[in-house]
């Protein structure tokens, strides 16, 4: 039931600087912890996040084991035209999640 929470303004004026907030459900297991019996818990993290605005990449981040569970990533971009933001999270053990949000620019 992994899910994402996305906050993109529904409307903006052309040229406005807008804030985009994303929250992804993920355990971000570091790969350094051991179980009670001493076995290493395999690493399971998100390794990459990207955001495309009408197909053009506007933000990208690499994630590492020191990042806490449920990574919250926020960034700014300039509202240029109406359209869609596409978000993608890629991680260990075949993890991929996508989400999208629409914006109308006047």
């Amino acid at each position: 039931m992994a899910s994402a929470l996305i906050n993109v303004p529904k409307k903006a004026k052309r040229g406005d600087i807008i804030e985009i907030k994303t929250l992804m459900s993920h355990i971000m297991e570091t790969g350094y912890r051991r179980t009670a019996t001493g076995e290493l818990v395999p690493r399971d993290i998100i390794t990459s996040f990207s955001c495309r605005y009408n197909g053009v990449e506007v933000f990208r981040a690499d994630l590492f084991p020191a990042i806490a569970a449920n990574p919250f990533i926020t960034f700014f971009t300039v509202a240029t035209e109406s359209g869609k933001f596409d978000f993608e999270w890629i991680g260990d053990q075949g993890f991929t999640e996508t989400a999208s949000a629409a914006i109308s620019v006047e």
């Binding site: 929470l5 907030k21 929250l23």
Partner: peptide
């Protein structure tokens, strides 16, 4: 600030799961 914003509050991930 994390608690005040429902899109930043990770607890909301569980609330959404609960709704499902």
């Amino acid at each position: 600030a994390i608690q005040d914003d429902d899109t930043a509050n990770p607890g909301m991930l569980w609330v959404l799961d609960g709704e499902a």
